[in-house]
Protein backbone atom coordinates (compact mmCIF):
# COMPACT_ATOMS: atom_id res chain seq x y z
CA UNK A 1 0.00 0.00 0.00
CA UNK A 2 2.85 2.25 0.95
CA UNK A 3 4.62 1.46 -2.31
CA UNK A 4 1.51 2.23 -4.32
CA UNK A 5 1.17 5.61 -2.61
CA UNK A 6 4.81 6.47 -3.41
CA UNK A 7 4.28 5.38 -6.99
CA UNK A 8 1.18 7.52 -7.56
CA UNK A 9 2.59 10.59 -5.84
CA UNK A 10 5.82 10.34 -7.85
CA UNK A 11 3.86 9.85 -11.06
CA UNK A 12 1.80 12.95 -10.29
CA UNK A 13 4.96 14.88 -9.50
CA UNK A 14 6.60 13.89 -12.77
CA UNK A 15 3.44 14.75 -14.69
CA UNK A 16 3.35 18.15 -13.01
CA UNK A 17 6.95 18.57 -14.12
CA UNK A 18 6.27 17.59 -17.73
CA UNK A 19 2.89 19.28 -18.27
CA UNK A 20 4.04 22.92 -18.34
CA UNK A 21 6.84 21.95 -20.72
CA UNK A 22 4.48 20.04 -22.99
CA UNK A 23 1.98 22.91 -22.86
CA UNK A 24 4.63 25.45 -23.90
CA UNK A 25 6.01 23.26 -26.67
CA UNK A 26 2.72 22.20 -28.20
CA UNK A 27 1.21 25.65 -27.63
CA UNK A 28 3.96 27.26 -29.69
CA UNK A 29 3.91 24.42 -32.17
CA UNK A 30 0.21 24.85 -32.97
CA UNK A 31 -0.46 28.54 -32.29
CA UNK A 32 2.73 30.20 -33.50
CA UNK A 33 4.37 27.79 -35.90
CA UNK A 34 1.00 26.41 -37.01
CA UNK A 35 2.48 23.13 -38.08
CA UNK A 36 1.98 19.63 -36.84
CA UNK A 37 5.37 18.10 -36.09
CA UNK A 38 6.22 15.12 -38.28
CA UNK A 39 5.57 11.73 -36.68
CA UNK A 40 3.51 13.21 -33.86
CA UNK A 41 2.30 9.87 -32.41
CA UNK A 42 5.88 8.67 -32.13
CA UNK A 43 6.91 11.83 -30.31
CA UNK A 44 3.95 11.58 -27.93
CA UNK A 45 4.91 7.98 -27.22
CA UNK A 46 8.43 9.23 -26.50
CA UNK A 47 7.05 11.71 -23.95
CA UNK A 48 5.09 8.89 -22.33
CA UNK A 49 8.28 6.82 -22.09
CA UNK A 50 10.04 9.74 -20.44
CA UNK A 51 7.28 10.16 -17.84
CA UNK A 52 7.09 6.43 -17.07
CA UNK A 53 10.87 6.08 -17.01
CA UNK A 54 11.49 9.06 -14.76
CA UNK A 55 8.73 7.93 -12.39
CA UNK A 56 10.15 4.42 -12.04
CA UNK A 57 13.65 5.83 -11.67
CA UNK A 58 12.63 8.16 -8.84
CA UNK A 59 10.49 5.56 -7.09
CA UNK A 60 13.35 3.07 -7.17
CA UNK A 61 15.81 5.62 -5.82
CA UNK A 62 13.40 6.72 -3.12
CA UNK A 63 12.78 3.14 -2.17
CA UNK A 64 16.17 1.52 -2.23
CA UNK A 65 19.10 3.89 -2.47
CA UNK A 66 18.17 7.19 -0.86
CA UNK A 67 17.23 5.83 2.59
CA UNK A 68 20.45 3.82 2.70
CA UNK A 69 22.59 6.68 1.40
CA UNK A 70 21.07 9.28 3.71
CA UNK A 71 21.39 7.00 6.71
CA UNK A 72 24.98 6.39 5.76
CA UNK A 73 25.72 10.09 5.47
CA UNK A 74 24.25 10.57 8.94
CA UNK A 75 26.21 7.68 10.43
CA UNK A 76 29.52 8.65 8.85
CA UNK A 77 29.25 12.21 10.13
CA UNK A 78 28.16 11.10 13.60
CA UNK A 79 30.70 12.28 16.20
CA UNK A 80 30.62 8.81 17.77
CA UNK A 81 31.84 7.28 14.51
CA UNK A 82 34.45 9.97 13.87
CA UNK A 83 35.75 9.61 17.39
CA UNK A 84 36.51 13.28 17.92
CA UNK A 85 35.69 14.71 21.31
CA UNK A 86 33.04 17.41 21.16
CA UNK A 87 35.22 19.67 23.26
CA UNK A 88 38.46 19.20 21.34
CA UNK A 89 39.31 21.47 18.45
CA UNK A 90 38.14 20.20 15.07
CA UNK A 91 40.88 18.37 13.21
CA UNK A 92 40.10 17.95 9.53
CA UNK A 93 42.10 14.74 9.43
CA UNK A 94 39.53 12.94 11.58
CA UNK A 95 37.06 12.93 8.73
CA UNK A 96 38.87 10.56 6.36
CA UNK A 97 35.90 8.27 5.73
CA UNK A 98 33.67 11.27 5.08
CA UNK A 99 35.99 12.44 2.30
CA UNK A 100 36.17 8.93 0.86
CA UNK A 101 32.37 8.66 0.91
CA UNK A 102 31.99 12.13 -0.62
CA UNK A 103 34.39 11.29 -3.44
CA UNK A 104 32.84 7.91 -4.26
CA UNK A 105 29.24 9.09 -3.96
CA UNK A 106 30.00 12.12 -6.12
CA UNK A 107 31.58 9.94 -8.79
CA UNK A 108 29.04 7.14 -8.84
CA UNK A 109 25.90 9.28 -8.71
CA UNK A 110 27.19 11.44 -11.55
CA UNK A 111 27.76 8.39 -13.74
CA UNK A 112 24.08 7.49 -13.20
CA UNK A 113 22.76 11.05 -13.78
CA UNK A 114 20.21 10.94 -16.65
CA UNK A 115 20.73 14.53 -17.82
CA UNK A 116 24.48 13.98 -18.16
CA UNK A 117 23.79 10.85 -20.24
CA UNK A 118 21.55 12.96 -22.47
CA UNK A 119 24.18 15.65 -23.00
CA UNK A 120 26.89 13.04 -23.63
CA UNK A 121 24.74 11.35 -26.30
CA UNK A 122 24.10 14.70 -27.98
CA UNK A 123 27.75 15.76 -27.83
CA UNK A 124 28.94 12.50 -29.39
CA UNK A 125 26.34 12.87 -32.14
CA UNK A 126 27.13 16.51 -32.92
CA UNK A 127 30.88 16.12 -32.86
CA UNK A 128 30.69 13.10 -35.17
CA UNK A 129 32.27 10.88 -32.53
CA UNK A 130 35.16 13.22 -31.69
CA UNK A 131 33.80 13.59 -28.16
CA UNK A 132 33.81 10.19 -26.54
CA UNK A 133 30.66 9.95 -24.36
CA UNK A 134 32.41 7.79 -21.78
CA UNK A 135 35.45 10.02 -21.63
CA UNK A 136 33.18 13.01 -21.09
CA UNK A 137 31.10 11.31 -18.42
CA UNK A 138 34.10 10.04 -16.50
CA UNK A 139 35.78 13.46 -16.65
CA UNK A 140 32.60 15.11 -15.33
CA UNK A 141 32.18 12.48 -12.61
CA UNK A 142 35.78 12.95 -11.46
CA UNK A 143 35.17 16.68 -11.36
CA UNK A 144 32.08 16.25 -9.20
CA UNK A 145 33.93 13.80 -6.93
CA UNK A 146 36.81 16.22 -6.34
CA UNK A 147 34.41 19.13 -5.93
CA UNK A 148 32.27 17.45 -3.29
CA UNK A 149 35.31 16.19 -1.39
CA UNK A 150 36.76 19.69 -1.28
CA UNK A 151 33.34 21.03 -0.31
CA UNK A 152 33.24 18.64 2.67
CA UNK A 153 36.71 19.73 3.70
CA UNK A 154 35.49 23.33 3.57
CA UNK A 155 32.56 22.54 5.85
CA UNK A 156 34.89 20.81 8.32
CA UNK A 157 37.42 23.65 8.49
CA UNK A 158 34.73 26.34 8.15
CA UNK A 159 36.33 28.56 5.49
CA UNK A 160 34.07 31.08 3.74
CA UNK A 161 32.80 29.57 0.50
CA UNK A 162 33.34 32.51 -1.80
CA UNK A 163 37.15 32.33 -1.77
CA UNK A 164 36.98 28.79 -3.09
CA UNK A 165 34.46 29.68 -5.77
CA UNK A 166 36.34 32.79 -6.88
CA UNK A 167 39.60 30.82 -7.07
CA UNK A 168 37.72 28.23 -9.14
CA UNK A 169 36.53 30.95 -11.51
CA UNK A 170 40.10 32.16 -12.00
CA UNK A 171 41.21 28.63 -12.87
CA UNK A 172 38.29 28.20 -15.29
CA UNK A 173 39.11 31.46 -17.06
CA UNK A 174 42.77 30.49 -17.33
CA UNK A 175 41.84 27.07 -18.71
CA UNK A 176 39.50 28.66 -21.25
CA UNK A 177 42.47 30.28 -22.95
CA UNK A 178 44.29 26.94 -23.19
CA UNK A 179 41.53 24.43 -23.94
CA UNK A 180 40.56 23.44 -27.50
CA UNK A 181 37.94 25.92 -28.73
CA UNK A 182 35.40 23.22 -29.63
CA UNK A 183 35.12 21.87 -26.11
CA UNK A 184 34.67 25.16 -24.21
CA UNK A 185 30.85 25.52 -24.51
CA UNK A 186 30.33 21.85 -23.70
CA UNK A 187 32.59 22.17 -20.67
CA UNK A 188 30.62 25.16 -19.36
CA UNK A 189 27.40 23.21 -19.87
CA UNK A 190 28.66 20.17 -18.02
CA UNK A 191 28.77 22.25 -14.85
CA UNK A 192 25.02 22.69 -14.83
CA UNK A 193 23.89 19.23 -15.86
CA UNK A 194 25.70 17.23 -13.22
CA UNK A 195 23.53 18.04 -10.29
CA UNK A 196 19.99 16.82 -10.57
CA UNK A 197 17.90 13.81 -9.66
CA UNK A 198 20.46 11.41 -8.22
CA UNK A 199 23.21 13.62 -6.90
CA UNK A 200 21.35 16.42 -5.13
CA UNK A 201 19.44 14.45 -2.45
CA UNK A 202 22.47 12.40 -1.36
CA UNK A 203 24.87 15.30 -1.43
CA UNK A 204 22.47 17.58 0.42
CA UNK A 205 22.11 14.93 3.15
CA UNK A 206 25.87 14.70 3.44
CA UNK A 207 26.33 18.46 3.72
CA UNK A 208 23.56 18.85 6.27
CA UNK A 209 24.81 15.92 8.36
CA UNK A 210 28.33 17.28 8.34
CA UNK A 211 27.28 20.80 9.27
CA UNK A 212 25.21 19.41 12.14
CA UNK A 213 27.95 17.24 13.60
CA UNK A 214 31.02 19.45 13.27
CA UNK A 215 31.12 21.66 16.35
CA UNK A 216 30.69 25.34 15.62
CA UNK A 217 28.96 24.93 12.25
CA UNK A 218 25.45 26.16 11.60
CA UNK A 219 23.59 23.69 9.33
CA UNK A 220 21.47 26.49 7.91
CA UNK A 221 24.49 28.40 6.69
CA UNK A 222 27.37 25.93 6.37
CA UNK A 223 25.31 23.01 5.07
CA UNK A 224 25.03 24.60 1.65
CA UNK A 225 27.64 25.00 -1.00
CA UNK A 226 28.35 21.40 -1.96
CA UNK A 227 26.18 21.71 -5.07
CA UNK A 228 28.09 24.83 -6.06
CA UNK A 229 31.36 22.91 -5.84
CA UNK A 230 29.81 20.05 -7.78
CA UNK A 231 28.85 22.40 -10.59
CA UNK A 232 32.18 24.21 -10.78
CA UNK A 233 34.72 21.41 -10.80
CA UNK A 234 33.35 19.46 -13.79
CA UNK A 235 34.05 22.53 -15.95
CA UNK A 236 37.71 22.32 -15.01
CA UNK A 237 37.78 18.53 -15.37
CA UNK A 238 36.29 18.57 -18.87
CA UNK A 239 38.65 21.28 -20.09
CA UNK A 240 41.62 19.50 -18.56
CA UNK A 241 40.52 16.24 -20.17
CA UNK A 242 40.16 17.89 -23.59
CA UNK A 243 43.52 19.61 -23.24
CA UNK A 244 45.23 16.32 -22.32
CA UNK A 245 43.53 14.50 -25.20
CA UNK A 246 44.72 17.20 -27.59
CA UNK A 247 48.29 17.12 -26.30
CA UNK A 248 48.29 13.33 -26.49
CA UNK A 249 47.17 13.55 -30.14
CA UNK A 250 49.93 16.05 -30.94
CA UNK A 251 52.50 13.88 -29.27
CA UNK A 252 51.37 10.78 -31.15
CA UNK A 253 51.50 12.60 -34.46
CA UNK A 254 54.91 14.02 -33.74
CA UNK A 255 56.19 10.60 -32.78
CA UNK A 256 54.82 9.03 -35.92
CA UNK A 257 56.33 11.83 -37.98
CA UNK A 258 59.64 11.17 -36.25
CA UNK A 259 59.45 7.44 -37.03
CA UNK A 260 59.00 7.95 -40.74
CA UNK A 261 61.25 10.75 -41.86
CA UNK A 262 60.15 11.79 -45.32
Amino acid sequence: MDALATLTSTLLGTLRDVLPIAAIIFGFQFLVLKRIPPRLPRILAGFAWVVVGLTLFLVGLEWALFPLGKLMAAQLTDPAFIGAGATAAVDWRDYGWVYAFAFLVGFSTTIAEPSLIAVAIKAAEVSGGAVNPWGLRIAVALGVAVGITLGCYRIVVGDPIHWYIIAGYVVVVAQTTLAPRLIVPLAYDSGGVTTSTVTVPLVAALGLGLAQSVPGRNPLIDGFGLIAFASLFPIMAVMAYAWCAEQWGHWQRRRRAGDEPS
Partner: peptide
Amino acid sequence: CVVAGLTFFIVGLEQG
Protein backbone atom coordinates in the same frame (compact mmCIF):
# COMPACT_ATOMS: atom_id res chain seq x y z
CA CYS B 1 12.80 -0.02 -10.82
CA VAL B 2 15.78 2.30 -11.20
CA VAL B 3 17.26 0.23 -14.04
CA ALA B 4 13.93 -0.04 -15.87
CA GLY B 5 13.24 3.65 -15.32
CA LEU B 6 16.59 4.79 -16.68
CA THR B 7 16.12 2.51 -19.70
CA PHE B 8 12.68 3.91 -20.54
CA PHE B 9 13.92 7.45 -20.01
CA ILE B 10 16.77 7.00 -22.52
CA VAL B 11 14.39 5.45 -25.06
CA GLY B 12 11.92 8.33 -24.61
CA LEU B 13 14.75 10.84 -24.80
CA GLU B 14 15.78 9.77 -28.29
CA GLN B 15 12.22 9.31 -29.44
CA GLY B 16 10.49 12.33 -27.89
